[in-house]
Design a protein around this nucleic acid. Structure first.
Lengths: 318, 318
DNA sequence: GCATTCTTGCATGCTTCCATTCGCACCGTT
DNA sequence: AACGGTGCGAATGGAAGCATGCAAGAATGC
């Protein structure tokens, strides 16, 4: 039974084809994008448990590497048990984990070292969108560059913002969406979040109330095209002694001069409307820094929320 | 208890550095472009037998895949015996074949663009953030893959949504920020935008009113962790005959089954809170498709807004 | 509210894969 | 021509990896 076989093809039937209609050998090289689509097709419409979902997500995001991983290693990286990995593969229709591994290996017959080679193909319309995506990728990488050049900016902002008993978050018009995003998450680790998303005297009043209530810091979202009121609110905050962090685009402007820390998040401008992917990520990084600065207290608050949520069975399958 | 206590001379727990004198401690992590050079450096100046030379050639040409291959399979593909593969790995200075495999795996830590080189340099905290950024870059590239595999999904959604006289945009909790983003911009090219960001009867009522007012399509934002109400609203919309586009994350779930078009936007989960950069970009792409579908009418509306804005000098000059 | 089903991690037996030993073939040397 | 050396593949023992039974906990349905 030992391998007297140089069997060039698997006659053992291990590579059980998934429930897809045709399982022809897709030997020709597949771009990493198609691989993900293929993978998504395999997963779609399948009933998966929460742990399996986590695995599915990891596999879709790292399908190239997973092919080189053992079941135990994959389990370790995703924080699940090794049997769960086996069951995950079986749930996808494979005989076992090795079957999934082989399938992943065949998906990427050729290593996609660089992923920007298929831009030229496709319709011009698609190409325009692809360039927009490429722009946003560059914008995200600009954030990474900031992490290197100014590694303390985020943590400083996180500490200051978390330390403020009352925390006003200011952003008008298009920036209001980011404000809403930050508000939603920041409220889980900070009890005094206030938002200012409307200009005029109402916004100024809210800010004033925050300052009177003991606020020591504020966050300003100033993405283009921000109205004068944004700057006026920023200056009002400074005048009241608030330490101000700002998320703004790269163009040097009044925000850079007036804010204590300016976090740059370039906007994508290739589409009809501005795209705020980099700002969304920067907000996420800032929230992370705030949670970090909050320490155990923030942690406890967060856990309390999780408990509350699961008690209420508020979410889908989880 | 795992029997790891055994100090067999195999498992060094770390990638065994080749015995080359110049071999740096740990191959610092090399972007995949340097992988071949790194590999060549490892092979150069080493005395190899003919069979090993054949193996070396195959490994250099397919280093990406070899990391996913077992010793037996590599032997089969190169037409040599399995022990020769082991000896080859040992000749290169590794403890055995698994050592070579691990080394190859590290070579291509992860392909896409991000300069992983500096990651090892900085503090672990910075590294964590950089990986989060890298994740989001991968998520954005996943959008690009979708553009290729499903080039019509966006335009179909844009046409349907723009064509609806009244356009409800649904998204609860964390997704409400994306809803706000879309609402802000969509209002510039569409006169009937409504938003549903709160669960309960109020949301259902709003949706009902939209349907009664002639809505033919709806947009649902369903990023994790979405509550049951999101699905209920989605189904209510479908029940009323609305055509539903959804922006959701990659994991297959009820949204994929119930929506007419599911636009996948993976969320970044390396930070304390989810990051929605990909969803923000997908929203931008969708808005673009809507503007495209709106044609001259949308264009006129947009221009009218621009005129209005500049007349009022509402914005800071860029 | 309780029973039932489901999910997940732990422990364990089994399978696969890998390293080693041995024998044979080839080659250069005496 | 004989011999020592070397390279290679076949066979085997051992180790790592993988799959399955089992129990605890959670979710769900009645």
């Amino acid at each position: 039974m030992t391998s007297s076989a140089r069997a060039s093809h698997n006659q053992d039937g291990h590579t059980a084809p998934p429930s897809r209609p045709e399982a022809e050998s897709v030997g020709h090289d597949v771009s990493s994008g198609d691989a993900r689509a293929e993978l998504a097709a395999l997963l779609s419409g399948r009933r998966l448990t929460p742990v399996q979902r986590r695995l599915a997500q990891y596999v879709t995001e790292h399908h190239g590497q997973v092919a080189a991983l053992g079941a135990g290693e994959l389990a370790e990286r995703t924080g699940v048990s090794q049997p769960s990995v086996t069951r995950f593969a079986q749930a996808l229709g494979f005989e076992g984990y090795p079957g999934l591994r082989r399938w992943l290996r065949e998906l990427r017959t050729d290593g996609p070292s660089t992923s920007q080679r298929h831009v030229a193909e496709g319709a011009p319309e698609v190409k325009r969108l692809q360039q927009a995506v490429a722009d946003e990728v560059a914008n995200l990488q600009y954030l990474e560059a900031q992490l290197m050049s100014e590694p303390t900016a985020l943590s400083r902002a996180g500490t200051r913002l978390t330390g403020s008993p009352v925390l006003p978050i200011i952003g008008l018009r298009a920036s209001a969406a980011i404000v809403e995003h930050v508000r939603f998450f920041a409220a889980k680790i900070h009890g005094g979040v206030r938002t200012v998303t409307h200009a005029g005297s109402m916004g100024a009043d809210t800010l004033e109330q925050c300052a009177s209530a003991g606020a020591t810091a504020a966050l300003v979202i100033a993405l283009p095209r921000y109205p004068r009121e944004t700057i006026e609110l920023l200056r009002q905050a400074r005048k009241r002694g608030l330490w101000v962090a700002a998320i703004t685009d790269t163009v040097p402007g009044p925000v850079h001069r007036d804010a204590d820390v300016a976090l740059q998040a370039p906007v994508g401008d290739r589409l009809v409307f501005d795209s705020h992917a980099a700002a969304a990520l920067m907000a996420g990084l800032l929230l992370d820094a705030m949670a970090e600065a909050g320490g155990t207290q923030a942690q406890r608050r967060l856990e309390a929320f999780e408990r509350h949520a699961s008690e209420q069975q508020a979410f889908w399958p989880h």
